[in-house]
Write a protein that binds this DNA or RNA. Sequence first.
DNA 1: CCATATACCTGGCAGC
DNA 2: TGCTGCCAGGTATATG
Length: 271
Amino acid sequence: MPELPEVEVTRLSFASAIAGASILKAQLGLALRWPLGCDVASLTGRKVLAVRRRGKYLLLDLSQGLLLIHLGMSGSLTFGAEIQPPGKHDHFDLTTSHGVLRLHDPRRFGAVVYVNSETDAMAIKLLGHLGVEPLEEGFDPVVFAAGLKKRNAPIKQVLLAGELVVGVGNIYASEALFLAGIRPTTRASRISKPRAFKLHGAIRDVLARAVAQGGSTLRDFSNAQGQNGYFQLQANVYDRAGQPCRVCTAPIRRLVQGQRSTFYCPVCQKP
DNA sequence: CCATATACCTGGCAGC
DNA sequence: TGCTGCCAGGTATATG
């Protein structure tokens, strides 16, 4: 499910409501991608001070330490006062004085990890290699263009790697490349500076618009208030194989790169 | 170091 | 109805 827009939309939907809450109880269900990294009972009594985002991770700052939450492919969070007993796919509950934060994740590629600080070994392992935040000032077009020059892999895969810029997943990589007019198979190192600048702008644009639309709900994504996103309705290429390009009417093509589907317009996007 | 393949896990869907 | 195979929004890790 979640790329940067979905994670940010999730964050925005409960961050202010949970801020300042005391943890009354924490419960784990089936194993997620990583172990919690501490005794779950030890979280009781701490406070949730704030919720930040780094790439596709949510960072819950606690009065001592922090929780890193990743939604994997199928995760979603809910936050509310009334809550049902945990269902088959509910694997983490954080009961607080302001409501219950619950992780629902059928495939269990997601994770909830406790670390004492962002310099802990586990935090470094998960966050240390991440590139710059695309919606922040640090995402500089000149640096981005120079970074692309050093990579020989197809641009789609360079974007997905998240080492130059974070948060761009399978939907938004295809969408940003469409907006920039660049074929996903083009080697990153061969992208000219002007085209890199255009891609830089396209990434910012598509991610910001997706956040404004509440993210993309392809199957089951919803924010922590249970609301769906609508960006998928304005996708130009993602999941539109065989359908006419919204710009030139040529049929959208699908190909596989690194075992992931990629969609592009063969006319609007140049090698 | 770089690029690519693999593994993790469940559910929905098309086709037979 | 039930089976099989394929597909799905991510990413650490292994392998060349």
